[in-house]
Amino acid sequence: MAVQPDTARELVDAIFLFARTLRTTLVHHDSDLLPSALTGVLFLLARTGECRPSELAAEICVSQSALSRQIGELVDRGFVDRHPDPNDKRAHLVSCSPDGREILRTIQERRTERLTAELTDWDQQQVVEALAVVGRLNSTLAPIAGSTPQRTSS
């Protein structure tokens, strides 16, 4: 049976509220380490691997100029390496530096600790089931967003 429009609307609202809750519960607490926008860029760059900034901008769905500023700040902080593209000397490639991977590991550990503390009344099976549903939603919606779902562990 097809999903009813009212049910889909409720799901849209629930996902929006869930994303908001995640940001306030997990993400905002890391701003002392790295602003959330930069963390997002660094996270996706680490998952994508070395690439041109234009490719990363398309993946993140932001303008190249906005991403350029963020990449510049991450380079200044030592979290991103930038070097000329050997195939096109006019372009450059970016990648997550070892320091960038370390800050991501620290942020991931903090977020994992916070989430674990909040899920004390959940059992392992409930978390596995939630992970399966979120994974299925990502797999279903990623092609619409123009991205390819990738593994969730680092």
Rank of each mutant, 00 (worst) to 15 (best):
T48M: 13
D76A: 15
L33N: 10
V127Q: 03
L26R: 11
P35M: 09
Q126G: 11
A19C: 05
L22I: 14
R47V: 10
A145D: 03
A132S: 03
R101T: 08
A14E: 08
V75W: 03
D81Q: 04
R82W: 00
R90A: 10
S63M: 08
A58I: 01
R23T: 11
H92C: 04
E10K: 14
S153Y: 14
A66K: 11
E73G: 09
A37T: 09
N87V: 04
Q108A: 05
A117N: 15
A117M: 10
Q4I: 14
M1E: 14
L115W: 06
T25M: 09
L74M: 11
V128W: 08
S68G: 07
R9M: 11
L141N: 05
V27I: 04
L74H: 08
R77Q: 04
G100K: 02
D30Y: 10
S65Y: 06
V62L: 05
D6I: 13
C51K: 14
D30R: 08
T152L: 10
R151M: 11
H29V: 07
V3P: 03
P149N: 10
H92G: 04
T24A: 12
E129N: 10
D85L: 02
P149R: 10
G146H: 06
R101M: 04
Q108N: 07
I15P: 01
L26N: 08
S153Q: 12
I144M: 02
A66I: 09
A37E: 08
T21W: 09
L119T: 07
A14D: 07
C96A: 05
R90L: 06
G49N: 13
R151H: 15
D81E: 09
R47K: 11
F79G: 00
N87S: 07
Q125T: 15
M1F: 08
I107G: 01
A14I: 07
R111A: 04
S97D: 04
R136A: 12
D123R: 15
Q126M: 09
T24V: 10
G100N: 00
T112F: 15
S95A: 04
Q64M: 08
G135Q: 00
E102Q: 10
G78F: 02
A19M: 03
E118V: 05
R114G: 01
V133Q: 03
A91K: 13
E10S: 14
H83Q: 07
E113I: 02
L34M: 06
L56W: 06
T106L: 10
D121H: 15
A91W: 05
V133F: 06
G40D: 05
G146F: 01
D123S: 11
R20M: 05
F18H: 12
D76Y: 15
T39S: 13
V127M: 13
D99E: 12
V62P: 00
S68E: 06
E50D: 07
L38E: 13
D81T: 06
I144V: 14
G40V: 01
V12E: 06
D99V: 03
R69D: 05
